[in-house]
Design a protein around this nucleic acid. Structure first.
Lengths: 143, 143
DNA sequence: AAATATAGTTGACAAAATCAACTATATTAT
DNA sequence: ATAATATAGTTGATTTTGTCAACTATATTT
């Protein structure tokens, strides 16, 4: 791997970090922080998970996650039920009002995406998405 | 902008956030945290900046940055000199040993990039970088 | 049945970030 | 020229986010 390639990858990463930073402000004004939102999203997208899987997926300390789930549970957005095949495990689920929250957060995230990427023409948009898919495929197959 | 497009962009963003998260662990074992590193890098790449510009570029609170620079100054990695055209402004620079640190951090960041992206063939690598450039151009020209 | 591993909780703590008040210099409007 | 406003940076108080290790309880392995 050549230095020039590394440099270009890192330049892209700096650039894209900034974009993600802007996008990640979408929750401003909501009573949730980014970690809560990531957890809520993960629960919605992957129902039936235990804390272990969520922590793994989100690169989150299990203790930190535990507290975070407790808080969400206290607010009534999450419920936990024992797994019937493994007594240590908790199945984590969004409650109905948790799902409502998810949809609200989701809509607001969608709006942020429109703000940032919405200036492209239809053609450019499809082009960009194709590039994104290509990168994902290259890196996902690799790992 | 269609919902499907938004969804695909967001899927990519989730995917790439995870990659950046892994890359951002490169500083483990160094006496610096990620914010320090980002500042050091910015100072190296953009000499002559004031705190204002750095804060803007890195999306960082000016108070937070102020303390962070003070700490780096105390350790001898950074020096500040008054601007001669604006008495409020400090010109921020890396000292020689700050530059040494930069190169060390830089080398370690390079190694992380190799770890993550290094599994691609030469051809795939060039392909991927071309996709990255394309995305940057689409978004940079837009904004 | 004993040893080991795993899921989750809890306490103590450290790092990262935010917000507002404040100082000092610059700029703008009158 | 002066008063009002804006800007660069500092400081104090506080909150949020993240880390680490010890602990409980259940599973798995030997």
């Amino acid at each position: 791997m050549r230095q020039k390639q590394i440099d270009r990858i890192r330049a892209f990463n700096r650039f894209y970090t900034k974009i993600l930073g802007i996008l990640n402000r979408h929750y401003m004004g909501s009573p949730f922080g980014l970690p809560e939102i990531r957890v809520i999203q993960d629960m919605y997208l992957h129902p039936g998970r235990g804390a272990k899987e969520i922590a793994l997926e989100l690169n989150m300390d299990k203790g930190y996650l535990s507290r975070l789930l407790k808080k969400l549970e206290e607010h009534g957005y999450v419920c936990r039920s024992a797994s019937d095949t493994d007594g240590r495990r908790d199945i984590i689920s969004l409650t109905d009002s948790g799902i409502v929250i998810y949809h609200e957060l989701n809509a607001s995230a969608d709006r942020s995406v429109e703000d940032i990427y919405g200036g492209l023409t239809e053609e450019q948009m499809e082009e960009m998405i194709a590039h994104m898919d290509a990168i994902s495929n290259l890196l996902a197959n690799d790992k």
